[in-house]
Amino acid sequence: MNALRAVRLALLLCLAGLLVQLVTSLAWSPISFIVFASVGVPLVVAGTLVFIWTVLRELRRAGAL
C-alpha cells in the first residue's frame, strides 16, 4: 500500500472512531458507553497506529532509520 493511501486509511479509521464516540456520547446510556469504549476508542487507536506505522516505514525506506 502506498503511503498516501495508508494515511487516508488511518484518517478514515480515526474519523469512524470519532463519529462512533460522538453518536454514543449524544445518546448516553449504559449500552452506548460500552460501544464508546469498545468500538469508538479502539478505532481511533487503530488509526493512530496505522499512521505511525506508515511514517516509520517511509522513514526507513528513505534511509533515515
Partner: peptide
C-alpha cells in the same frame, strides 16, 4: 490531527 488530539479526546 490523527494521533494526539483524537487520543486526548478519547
Amino acid at each position: 490531527g490523527i494521533g494526539v488530539l483524537p487520543l486526548a479526546v478519547s
